[in-house]
Simulated scan of single mutants.
Amino acid sequence: MTGSVTVVIPNYNRTNLLEKCLSSILAQTRQVEEVIVIDDHSEQQKFEEIQCIVENFSKNIDIKLLRNGTNKGANYSRNRGIFAAKSDYIAFIDSDDFWMPQKIELQMKAIERHKTLGSTPVFSATGRYRVNGEGQIICRQFGGKRISSAKIRRSNFIGTLSSVIVETWVARFLGGFNERLPACQDWDFFIRLTDYATYVGVPEPLCIYFDHDGARITLNNKKRLSAHIEIYKMHLRNFGAKNTLSHEFLRNIAEDYQCQGDHDRSIRYFAKSILAKTLPKCDLPKKYKNIVENIMLHVIKMRGMPDIRQARYTRYDTIMAKILRNKTSNEKIMKDQNHIHALLK
């Protein structure tokens, strides 16, 4: 059993990074059947460059370029790709991310092994390297081999669409991505997928996710905050077990407010996050919860509010240092680091 694969790439005004992204697709040890680049109405000069890039790659791979009539956003573009795809599976990648050479081969082998066990639709994600703008590996991440409805609601453990493959028919059945959401459409998509599809996790870090300071399609704190609130209303509020689900979610809300400079709301949600983590099963009456939360607020104000975003990166450093202490892991990461730097040249 061998399923065909279409790669869907939304792109806006990117040329050099798009070219490198396509190079990483062309370098796959298991070639894909089709690549669709959806240009989100780039500036005319940029679009002409993008046309030249696609034309050059068309000599070696089946690649199509679609252009939106106006700027519609990444998820409108992805949805165009979903409904234009001719293959059994869709692999998503953002135009500022890359793949390691064995990404499609290893992921499709894992999917095909699973498909021999049953007929349920499948979606899959791999491990990933998070790298900075210079291509230096910040952290190696993987959401896990299994993801339940409860786990994916706690936090977007999958992390990036650039590692994801999904059966085309189920992506269409779900209507693709929710274009009304201002951000976090991938998280919403994963939550809805868990009701219909079985998740297959591939732990190898086969996706290179760029965490740079440039304008990623989905990066905007105000939009992210608004999207988090909508995700809560749609997928968390009525799901149950609120305390066990809310620690990561509340911390993300606190970070959103902190990045916007809303100090008071940031502290309040950070306090809620700490309490949700430290007292996950403590069913206190509401008035006592309010008392404990107010005490926590005063403690945070006295000690000072931490930089939540910086704390995340400190955790990445700690995790990476631990991984690199293992000789085998160290050698593998150094080899992959050299490959990433070569891609960027």
Score class of each variant (00 low, 15 high):
A241P: 05
F249M: 02
Y288S: 11
G240K: 01
P285V: 08
L250Y: 09
D264N: 12
D262H: 10
Y257V: 00
R268T: 09
K272R: 06
F270I: 01
A271I: 01
Q260E: 04
R268P: 02
L284W: 11
K242I: 15
E255F: 04
S266D: 02
L250T: 00
K289L: 07
N252E: 12
Y269S: 04
L279Y: 13
K287R: 13
T278D: 11
T244Y: 10
D283Q: 13
C259H: 13
E293D: 10
P285M: 08
G240S: 02
H263R: 15
L279C: 14
G261M: 01
I274K: 14
P285S: 08
K286W: 08
P285D: 07
R251M: 09
T278A: 14
V292W: 04
K286L: 10
T278E: 15
Y269N: 06
K287P: 11
N243R: 14
D262L: 03
H263K: 12
E255C: 13
Y257E: 05
T244F: 09
A254F: 00
A254K: 05
K242A: 15
K286I: 11
A254L: 03
K242V: 15
E248R: 10
D262G: 05
G261L: 03
V292G: 07
K281M: 12
A271N: 01
